[in-house]
Nucleic acid binder design. Structure first.
Lengths: 112, 112
DNA sequence: TTTCGCTATATCCTAACAAATATAACGATA
DNA sequence: TATCGTTATATTTGTTAGGATATAGCGAAA
């Protein structure tokens, strides 16, 4: 069996992490479930962890990534903004491209 | 100030990590100093940590990456094999290429 | 005005990981 | 055969990130 190359990418803003794979997973789950707590449950992470992540995302981003509402019908919820959706899509695309790129590069090591 | 994209790449072999940035730093330091303990001191990490890393590298690699000698003149030492040097060089090149590639990709996010 | 499920936040606790320490073994050299 | 600076490894101690738990506040709707 041969070597594999793996990668992790993330976006920073003013030395704060804006987006990484975990954050993108969370944002997708929010989009699917309509709430932060449901998203946390679906990802098997604590609400606190999810909240901390989302808070950090929104504090680092130039424009709001989600809109969170407290109280009201159903207790409230969270949803992605247009900007949030664009970020998620762009991140995914870059990540996929990066994997493809690295797989190409790998043959520099394969036959040493 | 605008977003930055960062990355971390590593090479795996049979689900074990072979090379990452930290390991490559260590290998370079071994090459420069001729010993594992000197390399550890130069990187400000404990000997134990350095030894554990190097041990893992050599156990994951298909061919030996360093040759370590115990006792004798100077107490012993460690040096990179040809193969080890090739791995280090290839990793560095792939890493640099990856950075350049990702910087290109970043403008997908810059103007959202 | 009570209920509901959610957002928001503080505090404690623990388990994983890193650092610190100790010690054995090695072999060329003098 | 004593010395030296290594490699090699076990064990103990510290630290910190994350998990668990608790609770307050919110607002639409019935």
């Amino acid at each position: 069996m041969s070597y594999k190359i793996k990668s992790r990418i993330w976006i920073e803003s003013e030395n704060n992490v804006l987006l990484g794979e975990g954050r993108v997973h969370l944002l997708k789950a929010i989009q699917e479930t309509g709430s932060l707590s449901k998203a946390a449950r679906s990802l098997n992470i604590s609400y606190k962890k999810a909240w901390t992540l989302l808070d950090s995302v929104n504090k680092s981003a130039k424009k709001p990534v989600t809109i969170n509402s407290i109280g009201g019908k159903g207790g409230g919820g969270a949803e992605l903004t247009e900007y949030g959706q664009s970020l998620v899509n762009a991140f995914d695309e870059i990540n996929r491209n990066c994997w493809a790129f690295l797989d190409e590069q790998l043959d520099k090591i394969a036959n040493l």
